[in-house]
């Protein structure tokens, strides 16, 4: 149990022990006419207190539905949901809502209201929490405090949305694709807000289809596809599960008859190789060892190296490895 004395300064203390979120056998199906979409298909998940938990998956994977069930917006067809130790629709909805903060995928605030007025409205709704000025500082909107929301940029609007979510000093913060469509600077500013909230002891559930965002922010990540968790762990653990952490991509004047894929895969430090006519992607655990060996092989077989690039493995690679698809390649799964 978290005692008030041990509670982090930025987050309201909780009298209930246990994980922030527990989902067991969650199912949700949407029907429209003859179309039946299984959005969540037997999903199990535990989000621990104090962590930033990333839900990563392509559009339509079931991330938003899962989060909306956790937020009490949608009722599941089956399965158990415990949020901060409580269950929705058991007479404690009000209490749960006082303890969570939500930033929806898209909210249009009243256009003629100022930032300060919007925050004033949300401040009045929560029984305790941050002051309006504190929230404005938290998301660095001081210069725009008296501007109408109509005049805010996309990033500023999104930071305002996050500020409304943080006003009640929530124990659990839901961020549903908070940086979609934002420029790199706005994204980094939002990341800083999340890190600061985490440093204060808060739990964050972050849904995103940006692998770098999940990797940068999350303590643990669940990769979701077709309504199920297909991988779970820290970003480093998930990447390590590929067997190697680096990729070497080469472009040559043609492999035909000169080098077989098996020969590339047998090079030192190479774990795996995917070859096309004039292109190969090697999964390696030591870049310099693999590159030296590969160059030697190319010279021996008289194959000209036209291009070489190396990069760290990412969560995207984990997703591709698990599903054979890219995170952004379709929107209907």
């Amino acid at each position: 149990m978290n005692s008030p004395a041990s509670a982090a300064p930025g987050v309201a203390s909780s009298a209930i022990d246990g994980p922030a979120i527990e989902l067991v056998g969650l199912r949700k199906t949407f029907r429209k006419g003859r179309d039946v979409t299984v959005a969540v298909n037997g999903l199990d998940l535990v989000v621990e207190r104090g962590e930033v938990f990333g839900l990563l998956g392509p559009n339509g994977a079931g991330k938003t539905t899962t989060v909306e069930i956790c937020e009490g917006l949608t009722a599941p067809d089956a399965g158990q949901v415990r949020v901060l130790g409580r269950q929705w629709r058991t007479g404690v909805d009000q209490e749960i809502r006082e303890r969570i903060g939500v930033c929806l995928q898209e909210t249009k605030f009243q256009e003629k209201a100022t930032v300060r007025e919007i925050l004033g409205l949300f401040r009045a709704i929560f029984p305790g929490g941050r002051s309006i000025e504190e929230a404005i500082d938290l998301v660095s909107l001081g210069e725009k405090a008296d501007s109408r929301t109509k005049g805010l940029s996309g990033g500023q609007r999104q930071r305002l949305a996050v500020a409304t979510a943080l006003l009640g000093r929530p124990e659990l913060l839901f961020l549903d694709e908070p940086t979609t469509g934002l420029d790199p600077q706005s994204r980094r500013q939002l990341w800083d807000v999340v890190r600061e909230y985490r440093a204060g002891g808060g739990t964050t559930v972050l849904t995103t289809h940006y692998m770098d965002e999940a990797q940068q922010l999350s303590d643990r990540v669940a990769i979701v596809d077709a309504g199920q968790v297909i991988a779970l762990g820290t970003p480093a653990e998930l990447i390590r599960s590929l067997g190697a952490e680096h990729f070497v991509e080469i472009e040559v004047d043609g492999f035909a008859g000169k080098i077989r894929p098996a020969e590339l895969a047998a090079l030192p430090a190479v774990e795996h190789c995917e070859c096309e006519d004039a292109r190969a992607v090697l999964t390696v655990d030591s870049v310099h060892t693999a590159v030296v060996a590969m160059e030697r092989l190319l010279q021996e077989r008289d194959v000209a190296l036209l291009g070489l690039a190396t990069r760290h493995a990412t969560l995207e690679d984990v997703f591709v490895h698990l599903t054979g698809r890219h995170l952004r390649e379709d929107g209907k799964s």
Binding site: L73, V102, T107, K108, F122
Partner: peptide, 12 residues
């Protein structure tokens, strides 16, 4: 515009 939805997830 989702504003009612946003308010719904508060204790209002």
């Amino acid at each position: 515009q989702n504003l009612l939805r946003r308010l719904f997830v508060t204790p209002i």
